[in-house]
Structures are given as structure tokens and as C-alpha cells.
Nucleic acid binder design. Structure first.
Lengths: 168, 168
DNA sequence: TATTGTTATACTCTATAACTATA
DNA sequence: TATAGTTATAGAGTATAACAATA
């Protein structure tokens, strides 16, 4: 942790590791709660939460996969599970017959509402408790900027098929 | 993202999601590189890196599992893989016959050294490029504090066996 | 009795590629 | 031909519980 390993100084390296450690610990804690309280994985919760926040509770499969950091087949698998449980429904898009629109059902919204308080509680306790208002503002601003930067240079959303960047 | 969902205001919620999104995107990018360049998963790299940074390149299994966010059986599995590839070696501890000491081999160190430049390069490009020095200092300070806070209130390191918090 | 580590097992998840259908 | 989504398959990873050995 002390030598300038290649291109990052000690401060950068430490920050990088702290970021990964914090998010990892947070995700474990949150995942644990979601499973216990709503039998949901972190990814499933994200899917439902995004849908619940979407204009009419509906999104295209592709947009959903793009939002959540996920492969298409992975999303199909998860959507299948959520569908089976009646938390979402899928139907062909009227505009584009190829597309599938995913919609949160009332049961899905209820489940999110049921799980959210405890979820938010953990996040506050673990992540925000040791932060001041200034910390929060700074953190939010920087992370938002970094996220936009990462989204701009698609790091893994590089389409699995669009045959251009298959390195090998 | 607008209503004060239970206990977090919009700013907190946005920061929370940004944190998870950033770490998720970063991990995918880094993982991709590690696999391509060294046939290592993110967890395996972490194990090797921690060992390479340890006093004599050696740590107890338990300490290693505790450092990496991992279950014991999971670590045994990963250690088995790394052992098979000759990247680490395991031997009973002289002090405590129950313990196993894990040591990085020269091959393990070489692999870390081989992979590190490209690894660090991705991190710099994705995470640090859009940051100023002030951002970095603030981020590092806050995240370090949060990590210590999380480690203090063991969120998932709650020992699997130590029979006290088995809720059911 | 408590702790360290391993193993066996069962399961979840994920990615790849092949496939269908529509644009 | 390109895009949206599904499916089949195969593999990696993870957790649980049972186990053996030492403290």
C-alpha cells in the first residue's frame, strides 16, 4: 500500500480499495436484509426499484439491462423469476414488435414498499451515519461525475454482439 | 428518486445509488481485464494482492477471509484453485496447529506484478480521471471513515458459527 | 467446549452461443 | 443485415452443514 504501484499513488490506491471495500460490505449487508425480508436478491430489488420509479412502471428489457449492470440473458433469467412470482409482467411492445415491455405489478410495488424501510435503514446506518452534510454533498457530487464518466466510456456495456470490440 | 423514501433524502438516495453503480461498473471493468490478462477473478486478485502486501507474504486463512469479504468455505475453494496453479502455498502454522498459513509463491508475486500495471491503468482511467486532487482527498477521507465504521459494526462478518446471532 | 480449516452437497447465478422474430 | 429477446447449456461461485483436529 505504500509504493506508487505503476500509476496510482498511495492515496489513490487507498481510496480505490476503500471504495471497493465499502461497496462490498454495504452490498452484503443490504443483500442479507433483502433476502430475509422479501426473498429478493440485490439485483432483483434493483430491477423492481427501477421499474417502480419509471414513468408508468414499465421499461423495455434492453433499457433495463442497460440500467442495471447486467447481461441480457441474465436479465431474462431474473425477469423469469420475478414473473413467476407475479412481481412483474411482460408483454410485447406496441411500437416495436421485437421489444418486450416489463411492468411492475401491484404485488411488485407492494413488495418494494414493504422492503424499502428496512433497506433504507441499513444504508443510513452503515453508509451515512458517519458522514456530515458536507461529506455527503461532496461524495454525491464526485460519484455522480464519475458515474457519468464511466457510462460515457462504456466499460462493459460494450454490446456482446455488435461485432466491433471482440478483442480475441 | 424524489420522495424521501423512508429515511433517506433524495441526495442520500442518489449518492447511495451512485456509489453502488460506480463500484459495480468499476469491478466489471477490472474483472474483465484481470481475467484476460492473468486468468484471475477479482477475488483471486485481492487474495494475492493482500498476501503480496503482508509482512512476509503470508497470512492465516481466517485473517485472509476476514480481510476479503468472504466466507471460509469460499476462501478454501479459492485457495484451492490458487494452490493448484502454484500461486500460493499452504502449510500448518507453527504457533497454532489448527491454523493454516497461506503464502504467496514467486509465481504468485510475478503474476500480480504482471497484471498490476494494466489493472491500475483501468482504475485510473475510469475512477480517477474525472477527479481533482481535492476530490480525491475528500473521497479518500470519507470512504476510509465509512469503512472503519462498517468494520466496527460487523455487518456480515458476524461469525457463521459463534452461536449467538442465529436469528432462527 | 470453542476455534480453525476442509469437504460434500446443493443451489444460484452468469456467460456464451444458437435461435426466432421483427425492423 | 441489424436488433430484441429467449433458450439451452455449461461452468463458476457460494453457502450450509457436517466433519476432523487442535486449543
Amino acid at each position: 500500500m505504500s509504493e506508487p504501484a505503476g500509476g496510482l499513488n498511495a492515496e489513490q490506491l487507498g481510496t480505490y480499495f476503500a471504495l471497493m471495500e465499502v461497496s462490498s460490505l454495504l452490498q452484503y449487508a443490504v443483500d442479507e436484509h433483502l433476502r430475509a425480508d422479501g426473498d429478493l436478491s440485490w439485483v432483483q430489488f434493483q430491477i423492481l426499484a427501477r421499474l417502480a420509479n419509471a414513468p408508468e412502471g414499465r421499461l423495455r428489457m434492453t433499457d433495463l439491462a442497460d440500467g442495471v449492470v447486467y447481461s441480457r440473458s441474465g436479465l431474462t433469467y431474473q425477469a423469469g423469476l420475478l414473473d413467476k412470482r407475479g412481481l412483474i409482467s411482460r408483454s410485447p411492445s406496441p411500437d416495436d414488435e421485437r421489444s418486450t415491455m416489463v411492468t411492475v405489478t401491484d404485488a411488485g410495488r407492494d413488495l418494494v414498499a414493504h422492503v424499502l424501510p428496512g433497506h433504507v435503514d441499513r444504508v443510513r446506518q452503515l453508509l451515512f451515519e458517519p458522514m456530515t452534510g458536507t461529506d455527503l454533498a461532496a461524495l454525491g457530487e464526485v460519484l455522480g461525475r464519475v458515474r457519468d464518466h464511466m457510462r460515457a466510456n462504456p466499460p462493459r456495456s460494450a454490446k456482446p454482439r455488435a461485432g466491433r470490440n471482440r478483442g480475441e
